[in-house]
Design a binder for these strands. Structure first.
Lengths: 140, 140
DNA sequence: TGCGATTTCATACTTAAGTATGAAGCAATT
DNA sequence: AATTGCTTCATACTTAAGTATGAAATCGCA
């Protein structure tokens, strides 16, 4: 949310600086009846560069913002609690129930319970389904 | 591989057309001592637009190419054959061995064999590990 | 303080996944 | 003709995953 504002300000400043420079060039060289083709080329080149920078910036920003939004919204919709969400992440990283139990210093049956509840809330019956659904919802 | 070429050609043509238009404007209005600020603004605006278009195009192309490259390169490195790669995709979509067998009109033991060979080649022991590794390698 | 949600663990069971081994047909290559 | 790789299937076994049920401790909130 903070980045597009920064981009806008930077772009505005850049435009202002360029405007001043252009005015300067206009009255010193161009009106002094120098080659206008050169002047045109310079303007075109500079603003092509500005455009490229703008295009790339805007394109990248748009993609980042989308991801962060869906994250928390769907988490509340599914009503996953902290442990379940934590375990979902470990499942997606390819860990087995036993490995998860070891990492979290918990017993295997505990993990199984969490996993089972997690599946119920997500509406799936296996880890691969859970991973796929979580990915399609951009939870992970 | 065909697209960057197209972009280059289009950009070249656009530049040529703009150059001709600019020449036209130069000698009809500008040298006719009309307002040069307006002329400058027009040039700047047009080329900013061109730049944005170029920037977005190039950025998107670069991302696509990267994915397709790694795709085939690592595929050869792992020496996965067609069936194995196909089944890897279905596994990542959350399907069970039985579901995969039904979809491909094959027997369950056949799928198990492919899956087992797939794991050997990928250096994993479970579907979740395979999915995670495939994702980290941008195979899927 | 009582209640709901969270978190933990256990036991028992069914089903799916994963491994090993063998085998057979088929296509392409040497 | 022989070899190599791909694809298919089978059988048998071990292990992990998933389900169901019950229970107990903890924590936040009304």
């Amino acid at each position: 949310m903070t980045r597009p504002l920064l981009t806008t300000i930077l772009f505005g400043l850049l435009l202002a600086v360029l405007a001043i420079l252009l005015q300067f060039f206009e009255y010193r060289y161009l009106v002094g009846s120098l080659n206008t083709s050169v002047y045109t080329s310079v303007v075109a080149t500079i603003f092509t560069g500005v455009g490229i920078w703008l295009g790339v910036s805007l394109f990248r920003k748009k993609k980042q913002d989308k991801q962060e939004q869906v994250d928390l919204t769907i988490l509340r919709k599914l009503k996953l609690n902290q442990r379940e969400y934590e375990i979902l992440g470990l499942i997606a990283k390819g860990f087995s129930n036993q490995e998860i139990a070891d990492q979290l210093f918990l017993a295997l049956p505990t993990i199984k319970t969490h996993v089972s509840n997690l599946y119920s809330k997500m509406g799936v019956q296996s880890r691969t389904q859970a991973i796929h659904k979580a990915r399609s919802m951009r939870l992970i």
